[in-house]
Amino acid sequence: MSFKETINVNTMLGYFEGEIPVNYQYTLGVGGNKFFTALMEKGEFIASECTACGVKTIYPLIYCEECFAPIEKYISLGVEGELYSFTECHYDYQGNKYDKPHVLGLVRFPGVRGGIFHRIAGNMDSLRIGMKVVAKLKPKAERSGTIDDIICFETA
């Protein structure tokens, strides 16, 4: 028996349609709560710092990825970081063209593992890897403890 590719227009094949009708509600977790509560209330980024081996991580964890010690110390990083890399996207995940290109980047903080992936303001020509960028936040009253409390990062 071998595969018989006798029908080559797939809409001619019989099929049954279905779906997985679930939705999800994710809690932020203990580390996530610390980050987003601080973002919402104080307008700053929090990282975890391992008192055993010194590794700092954003987003903050409750454990050190490196040595597995429980985290006891959380530090503020403010809202300024460095642009580690960036890209310009023209299509959404379904292949529809955006009205205007989206510029996205990864922002890192000196001496800290990890980073924040977010929208970057400005056009591609104005951006350089390593440049200082600062988060533009929603007004405090409008923040809800989600990643969209950050509107974007812009040139510092």
């Binding site: 994710y26 932020l28 977790g29 709560n33 964890l61 597995f68």
Partner: peptide, 19 residues
Amino acid sequence: RRAEETGQEMAYLASKMAL
């Protein structure tokens, strides 16, 4: 019934205790 911890954090708590 409902953990505040993420799946990752739960995995850590059990793993750390075992180690």
